[in-house]
Each structure stands twice: as structure tokens, then as C-alpha cells.
Nucleic acid binder design. Sequence first.
RNA 1: GGAGAGGUGGCUGAGUGGUCGAAAGCAACGCUUUGCUAAAGCGUCGUAGCCCUUAAAGGCUACCGAGGGUUCGAAUCCCUCCCUCUCCGCCA
Length: 426
Amino acid sequence: MLDIRLIREQAEMVRARLRQRGGEAWTLVDEVLSLDEARRLAETEKQSLQSERNRVSKEIGMARKQGGETSGIEAEMRAMGDRVDVLGRESAELDARQEALLLSLPNLPHEGCPVGAGAEENPEVRAWGQPVVLDFVPQDHVALGKELKMLDFEAGVKISGSAFVVYRGAGARLERALINFLLDLHTTQHGYTEIAPPLLVRPEALVGTGQLPKFEDQLYACERDGLYLLPTAEVPVTNLHREEIVDPGDLPICYAAYTPCFRREAGSAGLGTRGLIRMHQFDKVELVKICLPQDSAAELEKLTADAEKVLQLLGLHYRVIELCTGDIGFGASKTYDIEVWAPGQGSYLEVSSCSCFGDYQSRRMKLRYRDAATKKNLFPHTLNGSGTALARLFVALVETHQQADGSIALPTALQPYFGAAEIRVS
RNA sequence: GGAGAGGUGGCUGAGUGGUCGAAAGCAACGCUUUGCUAAAGCGUCGUAGCCCUUAAAGGCUACCGAGGGUUCGAAUCCCUCCCUCUCCGCCA
């Protein structure tokens, strides 16, 4: 959520930055401002009447004790009470509309965010390694998964529908090995605290991180209970400190969480894609940070490096791109995407998206810290990134390390977790 | 799912219609004093919105689980809901 004071005081700047995103959000700034003005007008009038009523009510109390006659003034106060009610309703209505509008506005892109219209203008920041060179025609993970009896897409369809999969045998074991490898790496090497959160979350949590109210159609809902299946662990984990005032001495707070993620992918272009690339349910290890505003730029670099380390240890070629203003996510102010090379696909796959949200999420979820110098409650910055998404990592891993004989040679780092050096037809 | 108890400031805990944003204690912070691993005294000590202001300071309003209602006036009375705890039932 954007700071209403910032919009008031620097409307032109806010409009300009929102405009860089493309879309129509910037046109709503005027509406926010006029609502804000009307709201404050009603609020001010209501409060001065309340003040008057409080004062007179005390007088009535005292007069009654002394046996005075108060019926005339009480009638006056009754009329004033009605007026307060009307103004109260009016300002509450304006307040709700302003709140709804502010919740629907995306974050401002960071000043340093490259300006561009869409994904094709995202600059590449760096790359690691080279696309693997195979002296045979590579198979894709669907074929490998079938031959090695790791992936059963038909069973996924039978049980749950399209874009669901069943992992089995070595596939299930590989998935589990990857989860443990990732969690161990981030908790023992990178300083994150492991979290195992609930998978069903309340709407307030989704408002806090920005999925609601705007993206409800992307969520699976359990209507009877008013709960949603989480689309990412970012939601429960960032919301751990919702409506709290955290001790600045505890910052940065760094969490790592493994969860499945559930996404309806409504209207999504790639939903029909073959294989594991876009599923309604996929596993992910998520990294979340809460830090002081002045540290967030450095923390984003560290977070991204922590995610990259995964791919390096698994011997997977990748590139890091920075999202331009036209492609950056709703709540993010700066984002790096990590894309891993998948030879069976002949393309790069996004396995991590590392973002700094500035105070956008903390303002939505009323997450604050008390500034030592000014004693004021300020909003910390929040960050998160995949460390990493599992399904696509699985794809890149088996496609990169496939052998001519159809087996898969596991990277050293993964062998203790998998319990073998290779996967082959038994 | 059934029965009961309860939700007050960082914590404990008073407060059943009027100067209560809320006693007291604890914790925390600041100052003073004495000093040896601490004590005593004094002071400060919730959150948010609005007004004023360059800012600081200040003024006002709201908030005692949430939302309604009664009343000139509600932490206090009434209604609905939510949550927590205990017991019973069910259950991985």
C-alpha cells in the first residue's frame, strides 16, 4: 500500500512512477486525492462535534448530580448525536472507499528499476556457467520421467485434473531430496530460520502480502471456512509479524520455508504447457526477509545470491535478469528473476523471483519497528524470493544431467540426500 | 459437534452508566543518589486518525476481542459474531 501522505505531497511523482508500469493504475491517483480530501473534511467536522458532545455530556452529568434541570440541553444533544451519526457514516464510507482504492494500487517501481514496456526489455544482469553440451539428442523431462518411472501425469489427471502430477519412486525421492537439500543449505549456510507454516490462510494474510483483493481469481478458496490455499509461502511467513511492532535489534529477520503452492493459473497462457512447467500445485522453498529500510538493497543482493547458490551447487547453468518497470510484479519495487537452462526444453525456466517490496507490504499488514533515534514507529522493508521453485528445478536437473543411456547422474551435493549417485531404470 | 469459563495497555490485574485511555504491580527507558556485580528515589512509558506547524511542541477524536444497539453520555447495559481455555464426543 502506498503512503497516502506521499500521494498527497508528491502526486506528480507518484503518477509518473505508476505510469512506468503501464496499465491504468496511475489514472486513479486523482480519485484517491479527492476521496482523501472529502474524507478529512467529514472527519474533522465529526470530531469537532464529538468534542462538543463530550464536553456537554460531562456538564449534564454534573448538573444532574446537583438536581438541575437538563431536559432542554439533552434534546439538543440528541440532535447533535444524529448529526454525528450521519457524519460518522459518511466518513466511514469515504474511508472504506479510499482504503479499497489504495489496496488496488500497485507499488511504485524503485528509482533504479530499468524502465521498459514488458518482459522483452528486461536486462540480463549476469550469467553463470554455460548451456550443457550433450553429444546426443537430449530428451525432455517428460520422456525421462516416464522411462525412469518418476513422473505420472496420467495419474495426476485422474485424481485431480490437468496440471497436476504424481511423483513416484525415484521421482518422489528426488523431490524430497531436493527439499531437504534446499532447507539445509539455507538454514545452515545462509542463516535463515526454518518455518513450517499452515497451508490454509485467512484473507487478511493475503491482503497483507498483496494477493487480495486484486488477484482473488488466482487463488483456490475454501469458501465454507473463509480460507484460501496458499499460492506461495511468502503469504504465511511474511504475515508471521503482521500487526506487530518488532524490535529493530532483531532485524534482519530471515525465514526459509518449504511448502506446496497452489495456483489456479486462471487465464494463464502457459497452462496447457507439456510437463512440469506450469502446475496448479508445485513445491517451493521460499526465502523471506524483514529488514531496516536502509539495508534492503544489500539484503536483496544477498537473497538473490542465496538462491543462485542452489543452482551452482547443482551444476545448472542460469542467468539473472532484472525486471523492468513494465514487467515487475504488483507489490514489488525491484525484482531479479533467476532463469535456469533446461536443455530438453531448449529454453530458460524461471525458478526464482527475488523481490524487494519496500514498505509496501509492511504498510498493508501494519508491520512496524520502533526507530531507536526518533522513537517513532516506522515500516520495515520486506523481501522474498524462491530458493527455489522445485518443479522447474526438477526439470532443469534431470534434463541437464541426463546421460546417453537415459540415466541421470546426480550432482555431488545432492547424492547424500538422494542416497545414490544416479538414477537409472531398475 | 456438545457443555462451561473467559477475552482490559509489553505482561499481571482493578474497574458494572458520567472528569476512565483506564487504578495498582511488574517489565522497559531516562535522570539522580549511593556504590561493587546491585539497590533506592524521581520521571517517562499504548496505538491510530484529524487539526495546527517548516519542524518540535500542542490541541482534538477514536480504540478496553469484532460489529451493531440502548443512552445526553458505554470498558461498564442489550444483541450478533470471532477467538482462547477446560471437560465430553470424534479423530491422524
